[in-house]
Nucleic acid binder design. Structure first.
Length: 423
RNA sequence: GGAGACGUGUCCGAGUGGUUGAAGGAGCACGCCUGGAAAGUGUGUAUAGGGGAAACUCUAUCAAGGGUUCGAAUCCCUUCGUCUCCGCCA
């Protein structure tokens, strides 16, 4: 969430930036600033009264100690009379604080100045396109047919076990998953990311910390009996590792990576978008997360983009990088780059990674801070990216590398997979 | 799942209603001592928020939330977590 101090000092800037994200009612900013003023005023009043009360109570304690019972009793009566005024003030303050909080919490992060204006995915800016699209022969088929042909994923039985969108990987299909996971984790740890294997369910506070709650509640599977949520991405547990922590400046940057299955309800999706592995309810993903010094985050995001680009290059997949427009960005992000790979048989770009800088938006919710040189605590900047999401990578690998009687795997996977082709 | 014990600052640990934000120790930082180090010694050492130009000051925080009281780390309730024993179990 945004910091009220920042809003107060940058009213016009906040309004202007919110409009880039197509935020509806900009006048809320003025309302919040007013409310903030009221909150601070009430705070002074109630704390002053509280201070008087505390002092009086101490005095009673001293009088009792000296055995001056009668004076103490008188004082007690005096203090008791102030109590209702104090309670009244405290209630007013709590109400005002709640209003203020509820207002701030619904404000999205402010987009970075490089974010293009726009409303829909069409308005995203293509910053790079690389890799040759393969020329497939006339017999080329989409990945769901290849999956059948080589018996890699059994969607029907997955649906029987759970429901549609829960793929059952099988044989070489299962092994390819394992190979990719292993490769991606090795690639990330070689770049200095510490590997984690986090819980797959999180509590409310954790889901709230990264911004899944309250605004994306409907997208997560909710285990109501225990109040847990199945994670939609490793970002959630991994970023929260440092929730409520103050780290030393020298510990930054903190680089973490984790493989987890991801669970998404994807309510409302339909059509060819959800065919095969294009969009599923459970999928495997390897995530990278960084907590960095605020001055560094815009350099780091470029590093992370380069890191993922290099990984895609080793897989020899054609890809493009998009800078998301204000309307297509997530609630929590200040700048997001999406990576899409080209699925040659479907002739479609499929998103396989999304790299975002959240600046202090998540850190403020999670209270992830560091002590700077002058010993002041500051919020860190948090960033994350997928490196990578598996299903669409698999779809592309299958489609782009198909031949009449086998699928050629890129060289980097040969050792991990234990073979050079799927046949 | 049943029974019991417990949850205090960076860590260990004292504290069962009254100047307790919290004894004592360790650690850490800075200084003294030393040729240098160890030992010794002195001082300092939480977080958040408010007010103030500043010095500083006020409020809150002893797992979390609520309650009793003029006053709660200390009493009561709820939740969470840890440990021990039993049960079950990959």
């Amino acid at each position: 969430m945004l910091q009220i101090n920042f809003i107060r000092q940058n009213i016009d800037l906040v309004k202007e930036r919110l409009s880039v994200k197509n935020y509806g009612d900009i006048s809320i900013v003025d309302k919040l600033v007013q409310l903030d003023e009221q909150v601070r005023k009430l705070k002074v009043e109630s704390e002053t009264l509280q201070a008087a009360n505390n002092a009086a109570s101490k005095e009673i304690g001293m009088l009792m100690g000296k055995g001056e019972k009668e004076l103490a009793e008188n004082k007690k009566l005096e203090v008791a009379q102030q109590k209702s005024a104090l309670q009244n003030l405290a209630q007013q303050l709590a109400d005002a604080e709640k209003l203020l909080y509820d207002g701030i919490i619904q404000l999205p992060n402010l987009p970075h100045t490089s974010v293009p204006k726009g409303k829909t995915p069409e308005d995203n800016e293509v910053v790079k396109e690389a890799g040759a699209k393969p020329a497939l022969g006339p017999t080329a088929v989409p990945h769901w047919d290849l999956i059948k042909k080589y018996d890699l994923v059994d969607f029907e039985t997955g649906a029987k076990l759970t429901g549609s969108g829960f793929p059952l990987y099988k044989g070489k299909g299962a092994k390819l998953q394992r190979a990719l996971i292993q490769y991606f984790l090795d690639y990330n740890t070689a770049a200095g990311y510490t590997e984690y294997l986090p819980p797959l369910m999180v509590n409310e506070a954790t889901a709230y910390g990264t911004g899944q709650l309250p605004d994306k509640e409907g997208q997560m599977y909710h285990v109501t009996a225990d109040g847990f949520y199945l994670i939609p991405t490793a970002e959630v547990p991994v970023t929260n590792i440092y929730r409520d922590e103050i780290v030393k400046e020298t510990e930054l940057p903190i680089k973490m990576t984790a493989y987890t299955p991801c669970f998404r309800r994807e309510a409302g999706s339909f059509g060819s978008d959800v065919r095969g592995l294009n969009r599923v309810h459970q999928f495997d993903k390897i995530e990278i997360v960084q907590l960095v010094h605020p001055d560094k985050s815009y350099v780091v995001i470029e590093d992370m983009v380069a890191h993922i680009e290099k990984l895609l290059n080793t897989l020899q997949l054609p890809y493009r990088i998009l800078r998301l427009c204000g309307g297509d960005m997530s609630f929590t992000s200040a700048l997001t780059y999406d990576f899409e790979v080209y699925s040659a048989a479907q002739q479609k770009w499929l998103e396989v990674s999304s790299v975002s800088n959240f600046e202090t938006f998540q850190a403020n919710r999670m209270k992830i801070r560091f002590k700077d040189e002058s010993n002041k605590t500051q919020l860190v900047h948090s960033l994350n990216g997928s490196s990578l999401a598996l299903p669409r990578i698999v779809a592309c690998l299958l489609e782009n590398n198909q031949t009449e009687n086998c699928i050629n795997l890129p060289e980097v996977l040969h050792n991990y997979f234990g073979a050079t082709t799927i046949s």
